[in-house]
Design a protein around this nucleic acid. Structure first.
Length: 470
DNA sequence: TGGGGTTAT
DNA sequence: ATAACCC
């Protein structure tokens, strides 16, 4: 895509030659070999993959007739996302249905309150990335971070050994910055851009989804740069343009990790943009926000982020919620819970693990406080009930409803009037089935199966614990 | 402002 | 259990 500057005579010379020790050896004590010394300071290479208007894409795959029409996905009275046809006509994310229809009367709306199709497709994407590399971290349903440092190193060594002297960037380079082939950090990031292109090609070929990618030396920067060319494109950030990227953010809340609350507190201090935060005295910031947050966000303002890509693995919790205008009797609450539970129990059954904690969350109506007023109560699940999660059927259903109603009564005095606008049920503290008891035949069989699947490497967590039918 | 998720305190 | 963050 991007024209790549032809290497100069000097470029041909240096970096590709197999270095003494093949590049894998420990750095020589007084080594002045470029490749060897560069190896000890090798940067991380992180890819951020961000699917385009994910829910709308999934709906277009489910119903291809919607492909070329303006499409919005609706939850309650909100258009939560829409395809690019709709965006051309002025529809924005999180617009009210009323405004969206006014802007665009031809807008087609599909209901997206049931997240099942999106959740399933989302995990397919994460699994696919897991085939390339074990370090994949999910962020919501439509974003993944992948630490591709190891893949890059492997390819760099291969290139060096084959004596290949050219390498081409895939996609855009942020700021159109020129690439320096003598700079091994540049070379690593360029190889990263090729890997990101392969990710996007695989996601499109195998799942039919398009998306953006950003490649940089940490998670923060990869995420910021992935959004710079928007639908279905990718961008790599070279270190020299880091300050331009982070300072291009007009407001501090655009920095991932600086949310609503922190922004409000920073504004009180007169901090409005990234430059303000960079220049703000650390001691004052630490007293205002605490050392931990202050140091973290000030580093973020410089584009520094040493947080690792933490493999997400299987989910830590399963929840289902419903919001509504009004729910004001115990009977109604019970009905809402009975609506939510079967779906949840089914998801947990398919997962195969057993939850040990259950939580009920509610939102009580209040005209003054915006929408923040959620409360919750949780409790351990009684052991005799936990056992029943392994089996099918809904023998869990009615005892679980009873538990949840008890939690409800802990929060709300049911003898007084109440007005709920949301009910949510969450199962967490998931544990693997204790199917291997010492001394039982099952123990030895299980060991063999686990030992075999270990060797295969990669995304094994979902492959084997997916009991969809049987 | 939906219907989800995570981690830190 | 809540509060913050993310989408």
């Amino acid at each position: 895509m991007e024209p790549f500057p032809p290497p100069t005579e000097e470029d041909e010379e240096d970096w590709l030659r197999p270095q003494p020790g093949g590049g894998a050896a420990p750095p020589a004590p007084s080594g002045h070999s470029k490749s060897v010394s560069a190896r000890s300071t090798a940067c991380r290479v992180i890819a951020h993959v961000d699917l385009d208007c994910f829910y709308a894409q999934v709906e277009m795959i489910r119903n291809p007739e919607l492909r070329d029409k303006p499409l919005g996905v609706q939850q309650k009275y909100i258009v939560v996302t829409c395809n690019y046809e709709a965006r051309k006509l002025g529809v924005k994310k999180l617009m009210s249905v009323k405004d969206a229809k006014e802007k665009c009367p031809q807008l087609i709306l599909v209901n997206g309150e049931d997240l099942t199709p999106y959740r399933e497709m989302s995990y397919k994407v994460t699994e696919l990335l897991g085939e390339f590399c074990p370090l994949v971290e999910r962020l919501g349903f439509d974003e993944n971070f992948v630490d591709i440092t190891e893949i890059v190193e492997k390819r760099l060594n291969q290139l060096q050994q084959s004596g290949c002297s050219r390498v081409c960037v895939s996609g855009h380079v942020y700021n159109h910055q020129a690439i320096n082939l003598l700079d091994t950090t540049h070379v690593r990031l360029v190889i990263g851009s090729q890997i990101a292109e392969e990710f996007r090609e695989a996601i499109y070929a195998r799942l039919g989804l398009t998306g953006c990618a950003g490649v940089a030396s940490n998670k923060l920067l990869s995420k910021l740069v992935s959004g710079t060319f928007k639908p279905n494109q990718q961008t790599v950030l070279l270190p020299e343009s880091c300050q331009d990227l982070i300072r291009s953010l007009d407001h501090i809340q655009k920095v991932p990790g600086i949310g609503y609350k922190t922004t409000k507190r920073l504004e009180t201090l007169g901090v409005r943009n990234v430059c303000d935060l960079q220049a703000f005295p650390s001691a004052v910031l630490e007293k205002e926000l605490g050392v931990s947050i202050a140091q973290r966000i000030q580093k973020l303002s410089y584009g520094e982020d040493d947080s690792p890509v933490t493999p997400s693995g299987p989910p830590q919790s399963f929840s289902d919620e419903d919001s509504f205008k009004k729910c004001s009797s115990e009977v109604e609450v019970k009905e809402k819970i009975e609506e939510l539970l079967p779906n949840l129990l089914d998801r947990i059954y398919k997962d195969g693990r057993q939850p040990h904690t259950v939580r009920l969350t509610i939102r009580q109506f209040s005209s003054t406080e915006k929408w923040f007023n959620r409360e919750s109560r949780q409790c351990p699940i009684p052991p005799h009930l936990i056992q029943k999660f392994g089996k099918e059927s809904s023998s869990v259903l009615s005892p679980m409803v009873d538990i949840l109603m008890k939690l409800f009564r802990k929060m709300v005095d049911v003898d007084q009037p109440f007005h709920l606008t949301l009910v949510s049920v969450c199962f967490s503290n998931l544990k693997d089935l204790p199917s291997s008891k010492k001394g039982s035949i099952g123990f030895y069989l299980k060991q063999e199966v686990e030992g075999a699947s270990q060797g295969e490497g990669g995304a094994s967590w979902n492959q084997n614990c997916n009991r969809t039918g049987t």
